[in-house]
Structures are given as structure tokens and as C-alpha cells.
Computed example of a mutant assay.
Amino acid sequence: MITPDEAELCYPHLGNYSCRRIVRPHSVYVLLYIILSSISVLTVTLNLLVIIAISHFKKLHSPTNFLLLSLAVSDFCVGFIFIFDILLLDNCWYLSAGWCMFHVVLSIIVPTASTGSIVLISIDRYIAVCDPLHYPTKVTVNRANISVVLCWFCSALYTLGLLENIKHPGGFNSCIGECMPLMHPVVIILDIFLTLIFPAIVIIILYVRVFVVAVSQARAMLSHVAVVKLQGSVKVNKSELKAARVLGVVVVVFLLCYTPAYLVSSLYGTLSTFYFVKCLYYFNSLLNPMIYVFFYPWFRKCVKYILSLQILKSGSSQHTVKRESC
């Protein structure tokens, strides 16, 4: 018969070698599983729609949209990572040490690549708004694709060098049933700087510059300073500024969702608190495609086209879609 103390262990038959589990009422577990599973499914589904839309429709094959595709891929992966975190609701890991390491590595590579994609998108918008005449030559599809590949490669390389227990899965666990990354305190501080503080500074500086240019252009248009010859470029800048505003919303949501998780992890908060902010951290991946749905008519049009299975028709990739940068 299992005693109350043994009921709080992940592996009761191992006694003190087992990690302690978080005991919650059954109704709370059911509610959490339903909510978190729904978030996971929605995250995977919505980001899959973004991936299909940009990949399938050739009219959307622009440098900015390929950077957005990278962000959607990372958000899509987050939906699967979330499944592992649902398994950790009671603070117990019941899968093998190899799967634990896979989860840990993926949970660092994907958010790091997501942050890198956000930075690349910010740079893209900065060049498009602040240097529109040279944008077509500076930012090409090939350069965007190379940037995306380098972003993911550096994220993987960074993650492999970050973890101390990568070569010995489960060898440094304090108890059986634990699945946590092992990092030196100095490395944790360095990680916070490289994956949050530094990217946030770069993003904020770029968007402040974009905002200043947007305001100056608006004033110039209102005071009729713009020369007639520049009307064409001003029209282009309007669409670029619209894209910059939408991506500005993406960046703000990104910072609001990611900052609490990094602050709590650096301060070694309690597990329950950390789990809440970790969910907020992953919830950002669900919000991104929802932002596109609300702000971009072309995305809603693509979704209808995909869900009606019209993309299976011959020549559907050439379907006319309003070509806007995301």
C-alpha cells in the first residue's frame, strides 16, 4: 500500500532516490491538460498555415516573408515542445534520459532561433523604411535565406556549447525523474545577455529609428514638402511602414512574453511560478500567427484557400495573392 509520502514521489519504489512530484486535485490536472493541449494544437495548426501559405504561393516569396517563415517554423516547433512540458505538469519526467536531453536541447535551440529571426526581421524593416532606394539590392531572397540558415546553425552551435550535461544525459540529475538543463551560473547570466538583453537592445534601437523616420515622413507629407518625383517611393514607404507597424506589435508581444521567463529563471523562482512564465514564454508562438490574421487580409485569404483544399489544384501556387511583406 502506498503511503502519503510515497504518493508525492515520481517513483515511489525508489524511495529517496526519486524526485518529489507536485500533487494537485484531479480536476485541476484535467483542466490544465485541456487548456495546455488546446494551446499546443492551436500553435501547431496556425503556424503550419503560415508555413504552407508562404511556401506554396509564389507571390509571397519575398525576403521579409522568408524571414517570417523562419519565425513560423520556430513557433511551429514550440507547439511540439509544449507537449513535453505538459508531461512535466507534476514535475516528473517518465521518459528516457535521451528524450529528456532531446527536449532540453530543442527547448533552447528553437527559442534562440526565434529570437534571431525577430532580430533579422527588425533589420529588414529598418533597411526597408530608412533606406528604401537601396533595399532591393541590399536585401535579396538569397541573402534572406542565407541569414535564416546561419541563424539556425548558430542557434544549434550555441546550444551545444551551452549545456554541460549534453554528453551525459541524466548523469547529473539530483534525483530520478528530473529533466533540467545543467548550466554554470556564469553561463546562465551570459545566456540572458546574449538571448534577451542584447537582442532587445538591438530591436529597440532599430524600431526607434524606424519610428523617427515614419514621423518625419508623415510630417513631410502633411506639409507638402515631398517632391512630386518622389511620390512613387512615398507610396512604397507607406506599405513598408504598415509592415513595420505590424512587426512592431510582434516585437512588443515577443518582449512581453520572453522577459518574465528570463527574469524568473535568473532569479531561480519556484517551479509553480516558473511554469506559469514558461507557458507565457511559449504562448508567444500562438500569438504571432493570430497577429497576422487580424492585420493581414492576404493571410486570411490564404487560409481560406488552404482549408478549402484549392491548393491541391494544378497551378494553385500561381494564385494571385496581394503581395505584402509581413
Rank of each mutant, 00 (worst) to 15 (best):
V227T: 15
L95R: 10
R209M: 15
C130K: 14
C326S: 10
N47F: 00
L160C: 05
C77V: 01
T64L: 08
K229W: 14
V28G: 03
F299Y: 14
Y94S: 14
Y126N: 06
L150H: 07
L42W: 09
L206R: 00
T3W: 11
H103P: 01
I83G: 02
A214Y: 06
D90A: 01
K167W: 11
T195M: 03
R300Y: 08
V293I: 14
D124V: 01
I311M: 10
V208C: 15
I188M: 10
F274G: 06
N65G: 05
V321Q: 09
M180C: 05
R20M: 10
V50R: 01
V277N: 03
A226K: 14
L196Y: 15
A156N: 03
A144M: 01
L162K: 03
I86G: 04
I54L: 11
A200F: 09
I34V: 13
V210L: 10
I2N: 09
S122V: 07
I34P: 06
V293P: 01
S40D: 04
L182V: 15
A7M: 15
F172I: 06
Y11F: 15
V236S: 14
F276C: 07
H224Y: 13
I108L: 09
I203L: 04
S74N: 07
A218D: 12
L307K: 14
V293D: 00
I2T: 11
I291N: 04
K278Q: 11
V30M: 07
P63G: 11
S70G: 13
V119E: 06
K59A: 10
S70V: 05
A220N: 08
V73D: 03
L46E: 02
P132W: 12
A244T: 12
V119S: 00
L286E: 06
S314M: 14
C92E: 04
I204G: 04
H184G: 01
V250Q: 03
S27Q: 07
R300K: 08
I166L: 13
S74C: 13
V249R: 09
S38Y: 08
L271S: 11
Y126H: 12
I176T: 11
E240M: 13
C175V: 07
K313S: 12
L241T: 07
H319K: 13
C100T: 12
C154M: 13
C326W: 07
M183W: 04
R20C: 02
T320G: 09
L67N: 08
F254K: 00
Q217G: 07
L230I: 10
Q217W: 02
I39D: 00
G248A: 08
L256S: 14
I176P: 01
L150E: 05
S223P: 06
K304I: 04
K304F: 04
I201Q: 07
L49N: 00
P199N: 09
S314C: 14
I166C: 00
H168T: 10
L88P: 00
T270F: 08
S62I: 09
Q231E: 11
V30E: 03
P63C: 03
A220S: 15
V212I: 15
I54V: 12
L182N: 11
S27R: 12
C279T: 14
T195A: 08
S40W: 01
N288I: 09
Q310S: 15
E164P: 00
S96F: 03
P4H: 11
I39S: 02
V129T: 13
H319N: 11
V303R: 03
Y268W: 12
M183T: 08
I86D: 01
L307T: 13
L88D: 02
Y94W: 09
